[in-house]
Design a protein around this nucleic acid. Sequence first.
DNA 1: CTGAAAGCGCTTACAG
DNA 2: CTGAAAGCGCTTACAG
Lengths: 352, 352
Amino acid sequence: VKKSVKPPENIAIRTTAELAHYVGLSRATVSRVLNGHSGVKAKNIKRVMEVVERTGFTPDPYSNILRGKRSATIAVYLSSFKQQPVVQKLAEVVQRLAKVGYTALIETAENTNHAEVTRWIKRMRAEGVIFVGQHVDPLLSAQVRELALAGIPHVFTDNFDDRKVNVVTLDRAMGLELAGHHLLDLGHRHIGLMGIDGKTPVELARVAGVRHALEARGLDPAQAIVTLENPPPRDSNMAYGRECARRFRAAPTMPTAFVTLNDEIAFGAMEGFRALGLQVPRDVSIIGFNNQDIAASASPGITTIDAEIEATAAAAVDYLLSQLLKGAVKSGRKQLIPSRLVIRESTGPARA
Amino acid sequence: VKKSVKPPENIAIRTTAELAHYVGLSRATVSRVLNGHSGVKAKNIKRVMEVVERTGFTPDPYSNILRGKRSATIAVYLSSFKQQPVVQKLAEVVQRLAKVGYTALIETAENTNHAEVTRWIKRMRAEGVIFVGQHVDPLLSAQVRELALAGIPHVFTDNFDDRKVNVVTLDRAMGLELAGHHLLDLGHRHIGLMGIDGKTPVELARVAGVRHALEARGLDPAQAIVTLENPPPRDSNMAYGRECARRFRAAPTMPTAFVTLNDEIAFGAMEGFRALGLQVPRDVSIIGFNNQDIAASASPGITTIDAEIEATAAAAVDYLLSQLLKGAVKSGRKQLIPSRLVIRESTGPARA
DNA sequence: CTGAAAGCGCTTACAG
DNA sequence: CTGAAAGCGCTTACAG
């Protein structure tokens, strides 16, 4: 064992072989020190660690992956980069994965064909997949099944229309039910819907939430829920809200309260009603959805249902990790994240 | 060479060795086919490709990285996940990298110590780094220098206060200069600043932009630029804008036009002035910054300076790639992305 | 035109 | 307590 000369500060150690040579030990022993194995002379541990700390040497992760170590990598497949909430959820997921030592590999439906998802995931040796955003391609079902066969677990963070798929998503029905009760408590008896006209499962769940609240009070949903016969086109959310306000005002039954698809529509509606001489919440109450910045910043602040992006991302990541930990690939598990109503100033007592 | 039996559809081929065995050839030949090398019998090419296509086999990337192939990986280091524009720029960067075959590895200053950035990048074998968001830690300078020594190129997508560092960022001074000229064209002679009170280099550049516009018309900036002696605290941008409006209204000199730090402040200011009985743009003109959704959706639409997030991300990625391509690590390069004024309805002729 | 062998960097039985 | 050797999956000189 030759004494190591006091080295220059900028010495670069790139491999365990170099490190071993430098400290006058074998690669095996150096590796043992690096991995904290017992049965190495204290003197040698010290000698190795001193150099490691000084040079910042870290073993090449790729050789270990090659040897069969897990890649510590999770694929995140986005519906799109263009949508604000999707990107926000992505950020949350990436962050949570990082905290438990996983690196996220990100891909979009915009770049890759849905049919290639599986191949991409396998090629990258990802240990699991998280789907973020609204994925609609039914081909994805087959892909997910193929992944399961390959022992790769998955989870969707938004509704995906397939019984066999794992989904963690916000309980929107619950959110709307809370909104409904809140408005009923305030004495409202006619509730207008804005932007919730579609027939998608997600939107139907929202309507069902309002209906439940009404039925719980013995009210007739068919009579209490008011929709526009002729909703305007929806290019800009705010403009849509403004125009909805105008049309509701002109409609035969003008409700005293509204629930909306999102905060921007709610904001536009507030503006619209104000322009028509109505005051919020004195004359009209309005509830948003998502609890975006705008809901807190608007004046009056908008009562809204929180999107629970953090909780959803956390639950999705946790569920994926639990599959990974158990080495069990699950399917068909549905988890609903409870909704939360954030009460601000845009809702008030119904006018007598 | 043994004839391959018609295989079951779900055969799994995981390595070139398995593939070679399956088609009755050597790993070397299979590898040649996989990499499109010439000098393989057409019959054998066909035989291999047929199985590759059916099974979706892709060679393990990690073994190639181990052999010295580039990792096709770029580190993206964020200041924070909490800021909207940072996350947006991240999305743009990730997307652009993906398009040219690079995978982004994402890390935040929130999780990692600035002092560990270099180590993280080296450990992950990233080929380069993109810094996104406002990084303030001066320790980062040393890290970047260390990266350069290791042959790893970098670029910042936001101002970073170090001459030796590569930066691609929006020409904010130009944006404000355009805003200034626009307002002067409309006859305004007193321009109020909202949210641009700080003494940071970025904010000083903004003020300089307005000053240039004024000086180009022979006006005295000291007289034309109006600031609040007592700006309110800035917790919420919208609330800040509203309160600024109130204080300017009460101040000795009430400007006829305003430039603001961002669209939300502009929005709040519009609300604030409206609440005071002033109309936009009849009585007051207001210019935002960033061209966020809210600027387009507001009513009136907000004249604003586009943040050019896409152009900035594109230029940053391009610059990093060019370094990678040339194998040359550069330093001290500053690139300004030209600003663009988006004229909407919140600006109009100065009242006589 | 094809195959056997070497080698990328690491860790872990195995042998001492 | 330590080291020489094997092996992860791939590609590429080298030899035929």
